[in-house]
Amino acid sequence: MTSLPPPPPPPPQGGPAGSPGLAKGDTMIEAKAATKWFGDLVAVSDVSFRIGAGVTALLGPNGAGKSTMLRMLSGQARPSRGEIHIVGGDPRTDPDVRRRIGIVPQQEAVFEALTALEFVTLSARLSELDDPTSAAIKALEIVELDTGDKRRLPTYSKGMRQRVKIAQCIVHEPDVVLLDEPLTGLDPRQRLAMVELFHTLGNDGMCVLISSHVLEEVERFGSNVLVIAKGRLAAQGDFHAIRALMSDRPLRVLVKAESARALAAALVANEAVLGVRLEDSATISVEAADGGAFGLAIAALAQQVGATLIEVRPLDDDLESVFKYLVNR
């Protein structure tokens, strides 16, 4: 197994690596100034990042360049400029690298002549497994599909076909799993099961990169995100940490307290606070310039004016707020 040289900052994200030959924290996906243009249209521009084992969400609005980025990572598309390395090699030209990648493409089409077991067995066979049928049965069981189903794939529901696609992706136990909108068509229970599966794969040492534009989905995948907007990498890392880095944007905090008016007056005088709005007799919304300083000050101020704090909650620390800020700035 090829390892990259010691990575320069930023260090790869991700959890513990459990795959044989991969050390904890090893970079498994690396993009170096990856750029892709189609004629005059620049789909992905100068994107660099490193990812290790664990689940990472590739987040961006429609048309941001997520699918193009995933196609470059899987080798399907050649970068117009820059480099892509998967487990240290080129996914377009190196069969050993391709053997270690699993892909769930966005398109819904499947081989109409095959059953689910035949499709997944074919994938296992093409991945050069020595017992493709057993591997296919195991993969289908993981995604909760009937291995004895003799129906051909066109008769399957959209959600079932999506699970077959996931099964063919993981059948050869790849090190890197690239999934383009994998939860499309699944019902809520199946979504939960698949999210759990992705976390299991990540915890087992696989590098799981999941593209999605549905924020509620992404929040379930964990907090590690790559945010792509207008073809550029807008942010990467834990989205709570990303929010904390947004120093140019005030933090909005909801404060519930008895004697809220007195507390509001005290807050106005505090340097960490940019604005205060009294919502009702017990609720204040605060815009703070520095979240850390505000956190330290609020308790002391409440004690000072004799107000009992009931709740202090950030209003824009969630992924949606972070995402909106990143793509609209």
Binding site: Q76, R98, I103, P105, Q107, A109, V110, S123, L126
Partner: peptide, 14 residues
């Protein structure tokens, strides 16, 4: 046309 070549092309097969 159907986007199915990806299932063959991305495999390690020659």
């Amino acid at each position: 046309e159907d986007g199915l070549l990806v299932y063959l092309w991305t495999k390690p097969t020659d």
